[in-house]
Simulated scan of single mutants.
Amino acid sequence: MSGVQIKTVKEDEVGMRLDRWFKTHFPELRHGDLEKCLRKGQIRVAGGRVKANRRLEIGEEIRVPPLQNEPRPSKPSQFRPEDASAVRDMIIFEDDAMLAINKPFGLAVQGGTNTKRHLDGMLASLEKDGERPRLVHRLDKDTGGLMLLAKTRQAAQRLGDAFKAHDIEKTYWALAAGAPRPRQGTIDMPIAKRMIRIGEGEEERVVPADGEGAKKAITDYQTIDEAGYNVAFLAMRPVTGRTHQLRVHAAAIGSPIIGDGKYGGTRASLEGVSTNLHLFCRTMTFPHPKNRRKMTLTASLSGHMLETWKFFTFDANAKCEWPEDIR
């Protein structure tokens, strides 16, 4: 048991919820006890009563009452010794606020059923002074390429806010079965999750849709190169960020992404190239979470997509510029 403490909100804690602040600084305090202290006014911020979802501001003083809970035993580390080396090999940019990685194809971002090794768990290997890199967005397991990670709470909030405000421009590369016509344009097609009959059963999929549950989805695209009429090297820019948006839109215009049997069916298979999904996050332009200046990062094409690009002699360093009048 300790006496009353007065803590000051630091710069990297700005915007953090009060309950999250307590979970970080006093992990032994159970949420129910936190709520009880808040109701009684024993916990105060800037001298006033507050709720658990109160966002903190720099320099504010937090009154912490005596805490009587017994500390909970810490969980043993789940990351493997080689995780730190593996993550380090993925890093393409790093400073004191953030880092960027080139995520390999097939690596899940977070855990789930039958998923024991994932990026989020591996990041624990980079913990330093109680801080570890934080996820601020996602990439599907089967998609490779550029991901941004925050190294501080403030950076995580600012990058998260930039994603929510669509202030981050992303360009993906894809191999499509069939060159789209016209060669460049905008796909403005609402999509929604629906239960679809597959064989004798049903499966939830994202499909073009109108009406209830349909969400606005917009994708810019341009053809960088072609190999005959059956294969196209596409650049795709999601204006909105819906689940499986690029895959659904590509299939909807008759140019499904190679390896995407879920949405492209048999057309998404191409003899001579990998059956894995050919979708890669190539570049991002975003405001740096510390100085807010715009910066652009690029991930080098890797894995099976690099092999496919060599097979078709596509330029793995091709430049992509988006016309201002594409929409």
Rank of each mutant, 00 (worst) to 15 (best):
I218D: 00
P76D: 13
R39M: 04
I92W: 13
Q42M: 11
L29P: 11
V109C: 03
K10M: 08
V248P: 11
A155H: 14
A214F: 05
W322Q: 02
I91F: 08
R44W: 00
N230P: 01
H244N: 07
V273N: 07
Q78E: 10
V239D: 00
C320S: 14
R55C: 07
W173C: 07
V4R: 15
S125T: 01
L246Y: 08
P208Y: 03
F286N: 14
M90R: 05
D142K: 03
D12M: 03
E131S: 06
P76M: 13
I253C: 04
P256K: 02
R88K: 14
N53A: 11
N317P: 03
A165Y: 00
G211D: 13
H31K: 14
K319H: 11
F22S: 05
R194N: 05
D225I: 00
L119F: 07
K290Q: 15
L99P: 10
L126Y: 01
T24N: 09
R44D: 02
Q110K: 00
L149R: 04
F286S: 13
R282V: 03
L67V: 12
D220M: 05
R181M: 07
Y229H: 12
L270D: 01
N69T: 15
A150H: 08
G178T: 00
I101S: 11
W309M: 10
Q184L: 09
V273H: 12
K36N: 11
A108K: 01
A318V: 12
T275K: 15
L279W: 05
M147H: 09
V9M: 02
K262L: 10
R247G: 09
D120K: 12
L126G: 02
T240A: 05
K216D: 09
Y229S: 09
K164R: 14
V45Y: 02
T296I: 07
G32V: 02
A217N: 07
L119M: 13
V206E: 10
R134Y: 01
H278W: 07
